[in-house]
């Protein structure tokens, strides 16, 4: 089971375009229920002092949206 951190809409907006370390950006995405999430790697490796709160996000099971179909 893959776990991810659950975000509110406001939290998602605050992370878009922001770095979690010197060379890596947050990438909030929506799960199958349209909930905003980030990965446990972004939570664990975040060294940006402005966003240390991500380390305390509630964890939920990751249920991805269906992948885009391969267009032939």
């Amino acid at each position: 089971m893959i776990e991810v951190g659950l975000l509110t809409e406001s939290q998602k907006n605050s992370l878009v375009g922001q770095l979690y370390d010197d060379d890596s950006y947050f990438n909030p995405i929506q799960d199958i229920s349209d909930q905003w999430i980030i990965s446990v790697e972004e939570m664990e490796f975040c060294v940006n002092p402005e966003f240390q709160w991500v380390k305390d996000l509630p964890l939920i099971e990751y249920k991805p949206k269906p992948e885009p179909p391969i267009e032939k």
Binding site: Y25, F26, E41, Y62
Partner: peptide, 20 residues
């Protein structure tokens, strides 16, 4: 420019399959 979840180590760069 890296986005989302990655783990970097001496063996290379490992994306997480979720959003990396």
């Amino acid at each position: 420019v890296f986005n989302g979840g990655w783990t970097h180590s001496s063996t290379g760069a490992l994306p997480n399959g979720v959003n990396g």
